[in-house]
């Protein structure tokens, strides 16, 4: 049948843009569609499959104090006949960050298109009350988990134990101790600009940089990330969630701490420049 293109083509051209939600083409959905959990059952396993952009966006929202929620939706098989559209419900979830779908039946021969065999998993940065209101009568089919910023930190890349990183961690801890977040952010950005791409320390620095964007940074989270810069290993603090009562700490000695850290960064910069002359990347156990 011949078909005339509708005006939606023009709409599509207007809307043609990079996907706001990046979905990986190959996702091992079996692990989450069947209900597997991680972290002792505290978090859904599918969080492991988040794309980097999704993970960073959720982290940014979490450190800003927004509620980030992971959810898994198992619609009833007869939901279509009751006027429920699970796909539409999921796509319209407020402040959706990530969405995954899977079907739980494998063989087309046994498939009934009138019965819902779908499962969904999502990550949203919306207040639980707003999600409850949106999901309405499907709420009892949806399991939710609160997600803390620390739950989203994933540090990959090559290991390194460069002395400059240990020095940075030490000085950054000093800045953190006096609440000089501005100096810490500057130092982090400076070091990021000097490091190679594929190092776990760089991954930690990126998370640290994001965490410092918060109006009231979470000190426990910052401390854990600074330690990760030096060690390449991230250990979530016991309580990494920002609380509304977390007071804005007035720096005890901001005037003294900032110049010191900047001076230290200048030294680090020289060290790194020297290292760069010795090799193309900072991914060796021993540098120079």
């Amino acid at each position: 049948m011949a078909r005339a293109k509708s005006s939606t083509v023009r709409t599509r051209r207007r809307l043609k843009q990079p996907a706001a939600v990046v979905i990986e083409a190959t996702v091992d959905t079996a692990s989450w569609a069947d209900g597997a959990d991680i972290a002792g059952g505290r978090l859904p396993a599918w969080l492991s499959f988040l794309a980097d952009a999704e993970r960073r966006e959720a982290f940014r929202r979490a450190v800003a104090g927004e509620a980030v929620v992971a959810a898994r939706y198992a619609p009833a098989e007869d939901c279509f006949g009751r006027g429920i559209d699970p796909l539409g419900l999921m796509l319209a979830t407020p402040d959706l960050i990530a969405l995954r779908a899977a079907r739980i039946t494998a063989a087309p021969a046994s498939f009934d298109p009138g019965r819902c065999q779908l499962r969904f998993a999502l990550l949203a940065a919306a207040p639980p009350a707003a999600l409850d209101q949106h999901w309405h009568d499907q709420r009892d089919r949806i399991r939710c988990w609160p997600v803390a910023a620390a739950d989203l930190v994933l540090i990959g890349g090559s290991a390194t134990s460069a002395p400059v990183l240990e020095d940075f961690s030490e000085q950054a801890m000093d800045a953190l101790a006096v609440g000089d977040f501005a100096a810490l952010a500057t130092a982090t950005a400076t070091l990021l600009g000097l490091m190679g791409e594929q190092l776990n320390a760089v991954a930690a620095l990126r998370w640290l940089s994001l965490a410092l964007e918060a109006a009231v940074p979470d000190r426990a989270l910052l401390r854990a990330l600074i330690e990760a810069v030096g060690s390449g290993q991230f250990t979530a603090p016991a309580e990494a969630v920002i609380t509304p009562t977390d007071e804005a700490v007035v720096p005890a000695e901001p005037a003294a701490a900032a110049p010191r850290l900047v001076a230290d960064i200048a030294v680090l910069t020289r060290d790194i420049a020297a290292v760069k002359r010795c090799g193309p990347v900072l991914d060796r156990k021993e540098l120079c």
Binding site: T8, L15, Q17, A19, V22, V27, L91, F111, Q117
Partner: peptide
């Protein structure tokens, strides 16, 4: 999702398109 046909053009909504691709 069950029959996995070849998709020759994505839908308007990039989120829906990503899900279908998945």
């Amino acid at each position: 999702a069950v029959l996995r046909p070849r998709i020759v053009a994505p839908p308007i909504d990039p989120r829906l398109g990503s899900l279908i691709e998945q």
